[in-house]
Measured scan of single mutants.
Amino acid sequence: VTLFVASYDYEARTEDDLSFHKGEKFQILNSSEGDWWEARSLTTGETGYIPSNYVAPV
C-alpha cells in the first residue's frame, strides 16, 4: 500500500477531483496518469484525482 500525506489544502475544481485538507492521508490507487493521481482518502473514504505536487510520501 502506497501512502501519501497532504502538504496543503486543495479544493476540487471538477467532479473527478478530490478536495482535501493538509495532513489528510491517502492510498494511491493509480499514479500512471502524470501529475494527477487517483487516490482514496483514508479520512473520508472518498476516491478521486489529486494533484501529485500537493502530497508527500508518509
Rank of each mutant, 00 (worst) to 15 (best):
L42H: 05
E11A: 11
A56D: 09
V58D: 10
Y10P: 01
E11K: 11
S52G: 07
A12Y: 03
S52Y: 08
F4P: 00
E24D: 14
R40H: 08
L18W: 04
T43S: 12
T2N: 11
K25M: 15
I28A: 02
D35G: 11
N30M: 07
E38L: 15
Q27K: 07
E38S: 07
V55L: 12
D17M: 14
S31T: 13
Y49K: 13
W37N: 01
K25T: 12
V58C: 10
T44E: 01
P51D: 05
D16Q: 14
V1L: 13
E46S: 09
S52D: 02
N53V: 09
P57M: 09
D9A: 07
E46C: 12
D9I: 02
T2E: 11
F20Q: 00
S7F: 14
K25F: 15
I50Y: 00
E24F: 04
P51M: 06
A12M: 04
F26M: 06
I28C: 05
N53Y: 11
E38V: 14
A39L: 02
L42M: 11
S19F: 03
A6E: 01
H21L: 12
E11L: 11
P51Q: 06
Y8G: 07
G34Y: 09
S41K: 12
T43F: 08
K22N: 04
R40E: 07
S19V: 02
V1W: 14
E33M: 14
K25W: 13
Q27D: 07
Q27M: 13
E46V: 09
K22I: 09
V55M: 10
A39Q: 00
K25N: 06
E38Y: 15
W37D: 02
I50L: 05
Y10V: 00
D9L: 03
D16Y: 15
R13K: 12
S52V: 09
V5N: 03
G45S: 04
L3T: 09
R13S: 10
D35Y: 13
S19T: 09
V55C: 05
S19Y: 03
L29F: 06
T47N: 05
P57Q: 08
G23N: 05
K22A: 11
F4Y: 15
G45W: 06
V55T: 04
F20R: 00
W37I: 05
R13F: 08
V58A: 10
I50A: 01
E33C: 14
E15T: 12
A6I: 02
D17R: 15
S7P: 04
D17W: 11
D35T: 09
D17A: 15
E38F: 15
E33P: 09
Y49C: 11
V58Y: 12
T14A: 12
A12V: 01
L42I: 09
I28N: 01
A6F: 01
N30Q: 08
S31W: 13
K22Y: 06
T14M: 11
L18S: 00
D17N: 11
E24C: 05
S41G: 03
S19H: 06
A12T: 04
S32H: 10
S32I: 10
A39D: 03
H21N: 11
Y8D: 09
E38Q: 11
E46Q: 14
Y10K: 02
N30S: 10
Y49P: 01
Q27F: 13
P57Y: 06
I28P: 02
V58H: 08
E38R: 08
W37F: 07
E38C: 15
T2G: 12
S41E: 03
W36M: 11
Y54G: 07
P51Y: 08
W37T: 02
E11H: 11
T2W: 12
D16A: 14
V1K: 10
S31Q: 13
H21Q: 13
L3N: 05
W36V: 06
T43R: 11
T2F: 11
T44Y: 02
V5S: 05
A56C: 14
I28G: 00
S41Y: 02
L42W: 07
D9M: 04
P51F: 06
E15W: 08
T44A: 02
F4Q: 03
K22M: 08
V5L: 06
H21K: 15
G48N: 01
L18C: 04
Y49E: 02
F20P: 00
K22R: 10
S7T: 15
G48A: 02
Y49V: 07
L42G: 03
G23W: 04
A39T: 02
V58L: 13
K22G: 04
L42Y: 06
A6N: 00
G48P: 00
Y54P: 03
G45Q: 06
V1M: 13
Y49G: 03
G48W: 03
G34D: 13
N30G: 09
A6M: 01
D35M: 10
K25C: 12
G45P: 00
Y10M: 02
D17C: 15
H21I: 12
Y49F: 12
L18M: 13
E11C: 14
S41R: 11
T44H: 04
E15D: 12
S19I: 02
T44W: 03
F4D: 00
L29Q: 05
Q27S: 07
L3K: 04
P51V: 02
T14H: 14
E33T: 12
V5F: 06
L18A: 00
F26D: 00
E15M: 10
I28R: 02
T43Q: 09
F26K: 00
R13T: 12
R40A: 06
I28Q: 01
S52K: 13
Y54C: 13
D9Y: 05
G23I: 01
E38A: 06
R40L: 14
F26R: 00
D35F: 13
E33R: 14
E15L: 10
F4S: 02
S32K: 10
E46G: 07
D9N: 08
V5M: 10
S32F: 10
S32N: 11
V1H: 13
L3S: 05
T44G: 02
P57V: 08
S41D: 04
W37K: 01
P51K: 06
A12R: 08
S7N: 14
W37A: 01
R40G: 04
T43N: 08
S52R: 10
R13C: 13
A56Q: 15
T43Y: 09
F20S: 01
Y10C: 05
E38D: 04
F20A: 01
H21A: 11
G34W: 09
S7V: 15
T44D: 03
G48Y: 04
E33K: 14
K25V: 15
L3E: 08
T14R: 15
L29Y: 06
A39I: 04
R13P: 07
N30F: 07
G34V: 11
S19D: 04
G34F: 09
F20V: 04
D9W: 05
L42A: 05
N53H: 12
S31G: 09
H21W: 08
N30R: 07
V55N: 02
F20E: 01
Y8N: 08
S19C: 05
T14S: 14
T14N: 14
L29R: 03
S52T: 06
Q27R: 07
P57I: 08
P57C: 07
E11D: 09
Y54E: 03
D16W: 15
H21C: 13
L29M: 08
Y49R: 14
S41V: 05
K22C: 07
A39E: 02
S7G: 09
K22E: 07
Y8Q: 12
D9S: 09
D16L: 14
S32R: 09
Y8R: 13
F26C: 04
Y8T: 09
T47R: 09
E46A: 12
D17S: 14
T44L: 02
Y10D: 00
Y8C: 15
L29T: 06
Y49L: 14
K25R: 11
T2R: 11
E11Q: 12
W36T: 06
T43K: 11
F20I: 06
T44N: 06
S7D: 08
E24Q: 06
E33W: 10
L42K: 04
T14Y: 15
I50V: 08
Y10R: 04
V1E: 12
T44I: 00
F4K: 01
R40C: 10
D35R: 07
P57D: 05
P57A: 09
E15R: 10
Y54R: 08
F4M: 09
S19K: 04
G45D: 05
E38P: 04
V1I: 13
L18Q: 02
A39R: 00
T44S: 10
A56F: 13
A12H: 05
T47I: 14
L3R: 04
